[in-house]
């Protein structure tokens, strides 16, 4: 009985991590569709992201409850719970970003498209590395540390792109201040995904080193 519980838990955790990756990929698709002005598809993808985010919440709560009620992994229980809760902030942030694009429909100049996509790619790479590191946390903590250190490197690339984007936005004389501030807000919420990944990665490095 104990063995089946342990397998179920690992399956739930893997499903939770897979869902974060799916949300990550869906956001890239959403952004592409947005720049193609395909707003119907943007709505569909936003709904898909919302559903997956809700699934992530349910999975996280279930895993946390089972770890505590069955008093499993007493040594690293706190670290695993911290990891799951911090990871769960990422799909939440992406869902918020998707809703913002869907409802606010910012006016992005065509010359900014590529940089927005680049920023999205870097944030996405941060998440992929973080998920690989999180999976390894349950098996080999050395790999976790290695992957999490890579997250920090990619996050700094994302920061550079974000700074570049902000410079371009504010150097454009055609747009008014309101548009500039609006676009800056979108740059920041997209960069926030990379920042969140870096924060989770930093916590994971400490947990892995401690154990």
């Amino acid at each position: 009985m104990l063995k089946s519980h342990e397998k179920e838990l690992m399956t739930s955790i893997n499903l939770f991590l897979d869902n974060i990756l799916k949300i990550n990929n869906l956001f890239k698709i959403l952004l592409q569709k947005y720049f193609d002005n395909n707003f119907e598809e943007v709505q569909t993808v936003t709904d898909q992201i919302s559903n997956l985010e809700s699934e992530c919440d349910a999975l996280r709560r279930d895993v946390e409850r089972r770890i505590y009620s069955e008093t499993l992994i007493p040594e690293i229980r706190g670290d695993v719970l911290g990891m799951l809760e911090n990871l769960d902030k990422i799909p939440g942030q992406i869902q918020g970003n998707a809703h913002s694009f869907n409802t606010e429909k910012p006016k992005v100049d065509s010359e900014l498209d590529q940089n927005f996509l680049k920023l999205c790619d870097y944030a996405s790479e941060c998440i992929s590395l973080l998920i690989e590191g999180s999976r390894s946390f349950f098996v080999d903590k050395k790999i976790t540390i290695k992957k999490c250190l890579e997250v920090a490197k990619v996050e700094s690339k994302a920061d550079k792109v974000s700074t570049e984007l902000k410079k371009t936005i504010f150097s454009n004389s055609k747009n008014g201040l309101a548009t500039k501030v609006h676009l800056k807000y979108f740059v920041e919420i997209m960069d926030e995904v990379a920042n969140l990944s870096e924060d989770v990665a930093d916590r994971l490095i400490i947990s892995s080193s401690k154990n």
Binding site: K3, L9, L72
Partner: peptide
């Protein structure tokens, strides 16, 4: 054996 933490926990129990 490359066991995950839950498998290790089970074996230790």
């Amino acid at each position: 054996l490359k066991l995950n933490v839950f498998q290790i926990d089970y074996q230790i129990r």
